[in-house]
Design a protein around this nucleic acid. Sequence first.
DNA 1: AACTTATTCAACCGCATAATG
DNA 2: ACATTATGCGGTTGAATAAGT
Length: 210
Amino acid sequence: MARMMCGRAGEPAVRKGPWTLEEDLILVGYISHHGEGSWDNLARSAGLNRNGKSCRLRWLNYLRPGLRRGSISPEEDMVIRELHSRLGNKWAEIAKHLPGRTDNEVKNYWRTKVHKKAPGHQKQLPATSEATSSVSASTSHASSTVGDEYTQTSFPYPDLSWVAADHHETVDVGASATRFFPSEFGGNFWNVQDNFWETLPLSDPVYEAL
DNA sequence: AACTTATTCAACCGCATAATG
DNA sequence: ACATTATGCGGTTGAATAAGT
């Protein structure tokens, strides 16, 4: 992250590194209006100082609704092992058989849990017991895993139309976002979502506009 | 409590392929 | 048919965090 040399003033360089809550909101808001795809164009139109690839990755691996967060279940573990033995490192292909899981997640799981268990790496609990022992391994982000081993982000989105269809409005989004979602949420959209939406100050002008 | 080592996973990079002009 | 641009995928990196000493 030392490498996020985001430029501010003249906004020269495209931003890299971790996504901020404001960026998440802008991206989700834009996609909820215009749909996904045309990532380069989306990045520009939404006013995100990111490249299309970055937006796509963020959306697919993290913001997209229906994503299942939390530990890989024993059943999923079995599927991964089975498919990997047949397909090899075809993570995207394997992920297609695991609803709510991303190729990145499967890949990470394989590398850290399965592959490492190969002789010489024994050290961690077996994948299955690890999986059942629950929880929220997903540290920094992850939606609520409370009392529910496997959670899933779900549609419908909170209506984020206020986040803006075009970037004229996005200017205010950051301000609104930081006003409503301060740092205790870890700067993450879905962190916010779980405990946030019921606490909205609905009388706020921003929401009245909905 | 302070320090070191290991683990996790979000995000980047580079390459291959597809789509478009 | 070719060149350019966009998209998708797999490999890799490194910051944050957890676990161990």
